[in-house]
């Protein structure tokens, strides 16, 4: 068994797929994994691949032309997942896709396609939930700042919706775990940037400074509930505790 490994970036993953495909070792005899690799397996040869823009482009072009653009979007989303086997799931799907073409997207009962779709659903759903539950706080100079701690690396999927929503504001969204930020200056394009530990601490401090609108929102949130219909189970189903970390309306008492 040959295991192809690569860093957890989109470019490296696509290159890894390229190398695995062209190794001609037989699809049954290879596996793809993202680093870090935890336990090494016996009788396996580990081959590390580095990201290569040229090969990455070739794979993207192949997916778009031989399968479809929709398939490429799905691959991009799946690559953002935190599933340890994601790269192998993507690879197995692409094998089928290069054989069947765009028809593969309706072969929902094939195990490889099922796994791929499930991964895609998870990432899309998480992106959507953060679209709902991300909260910005406003600093004195009018810059809006939000913190998120998603399971998957959804920031690149999330920020375009805010770009459309608030085109003429200054805002930034920070992924605390990955120390990654999407910054949108009012008059310019959004860009992704990684942050140092010190920068993150500063941003965190700023975030928890509350203003009058935070209080008004919390007041509104409490008043809008009908006490005769109280239903915490239903509330938890729609808004799991996991997502309440930075939702200001819950901070004083998570049970309300």
């Amino acid at each position: 068994m040959i295991v192809f490994t690569c860093e957890d970036t989109f470019e490296a993953m696509m290159t890894c797929i390229y190398e695995a495909w062209s190794s001609k070792a037989g699809h049954k005899n290879i596996k793809l994994k993202t680093e870090p690799i935890g336990n090494l397996e016996l009788f396996c040869e580990y081959r590390h691949t580095d990201g290569d823009m040229e090969k990455c482009r070739k794979v993207i072009r192949a997916i778009q032309q031989k399968i479809s653009r929709r398939a490429y979007h799905m691959v991009f989303r799946c690559a953002a997942s935190e599933h340890p086997e994601k790269l192998d799931i993507i690879y197995r799907f692409l094998l089928l896709g290069f054989y069947y073409g765009s028809r593969v997207l309706s072969m929902l009962s094939h195990p490889a396609v099922m796994a791929f779709f499930e991964l895609d659903r998870k990432v899309s759903n998480e992106t959507h939930l953060f679209r709902e539950f991300t909260r910005f706080s406003s600093s004195e100079n009018g810059v809006l700042s939000a913190l998120i701690e998603p399971k998957s690396n959804i920031l690149p999927l999330l920020y375009p919706s805010f770009e459309d929503r608030m085109p003429s504001e200054n805002w930034m969204i920070t992924d605390v775990n990955r120390r990654l930020a999407a910054v949108h200056p009012a008059a310019d394009e959004t860009y992704l940037t990684s942050l140092s530990a010190d920068e993150l601490t500063l941003i965190r401090q700023d975030y928890f400074q509350q203003d009058i609108y935070t209080d008004m929102w919390t007041g509104f949130f409490q008043n809008i509930a009908i006490k005769e219909r109280k239903n915490p189970a239903c509330q938890r189903t729609h808004l799991p505790l996991w997502y309440r970390k930075y939702a200001v309306e819950f901070s004083p008492d998570p049970d309300i």
């Binding site: 003429s168 006490k227 915490p232």
Partner: peptide, 23 residues
Amino acid sequence: GKKGFLGNSCAAGICHSFSADGR
């Protein structure tokens, strides 16, 4: 969304929170 304006609108609708009654 439009430059110079605030906001857009999404056909499926977006919920931003859920009150204690689950609505």
